[in-house]
Amino acid sequence: MAKVTIDGIEIDVPDGTTILQAARMIGPEVAPPTMCYHSKLKTSGGYCRTCLVEVTKGSEKDPRPMPKLVASCRTNVMDGMVVTNGLSEKVQDARAGVVEFLLLNHPLDCPICDQAGECHLQDLSYEHGHYNTRTDFERRTFEKIDIGDTIQLHMTRCILCYRCVKVAEQITDGRVHGVINRGDASEISTYIKEAIDNDFSGNMIDVCPVGALTDKTFRFKSRVWFTKPVDAHRDCDKCSGKVVLWYKGDDVLRVTGRKDQWGEVEEFICNTCRFDKKKTSDWTIEGVREISRHSVISANKYKKLVKPKRLTINDIKALPE
């Protein structure tokens, strides 16, 4: 066991736990945001740098602070380690920088993006980004590519988190896509534009933190906050069959895996469940899916509403430019 202090809160965690996992054990108040880390995918994380934290005391044995900010998703805790996340100005500053870098080439097309409402980058930029933009250069753009008959890749929106690559590597038989080119010209591609054709390819959509990989059976059908999530399951010979059905009226518009409080898929599901079973009669309904009150998806769905504070003219004046 190792004792670690994160933002002043102590917790005992098993050896080999990462700082991020320890912070998540304490709770969402101290957990750093993540874009590329995914708890169900091995070797994920370390690329986006949003989860940077400051280690002010290395361990009981070696109390020196770490010279640089470290990626909490890939750094293991040591006994006696002291970590600051939200309380460190250095971390907040670096994180705001990372958000700015991620948005530098990301299109501001949220109004027409299917991911809007459940997009990690939206949440991240809202919580950690700046109000204003400091760039007026043209953003890089790519052509949309159909990879398979059910998934569309819109590389312009990609933040290169490598999650879809890890999904293909770890839960499917053979990876046929990856990252080609380098630097800011890197792109996710199947190289010779091959189709990704396997039973679990749909999970790439679920793990994509932005709207780069979207479900073609759902594209432009509805905004996610107009649909109602319902837990359901069926007997499936390929996967656990535990899914969320997204209803609009009586129609199932899409089927996704269940995501935990960190927005990460709990159990991967197969393409048959995801794309082919879109009738209520295919499923055993379990009940309404709990959605965090802070998510836009929960808007107008629950009785206990928290009214937003009405802004006065003084509040508006106090807003940063």
Partner: peptide, 21 residues
């Protein structure tokens, strides 16, 4: 450095190109 960045982590991938521009 913009040309040679591998593109794996975001600060270097995006920042080097931005500085060049």
């Amino acid at each position: 450095y913009h040309h040679e960045s591998c593109g794996q982590c975001s600060p270097c991938r995006e920042g080097t190109g931005w500085m060049e521009k």
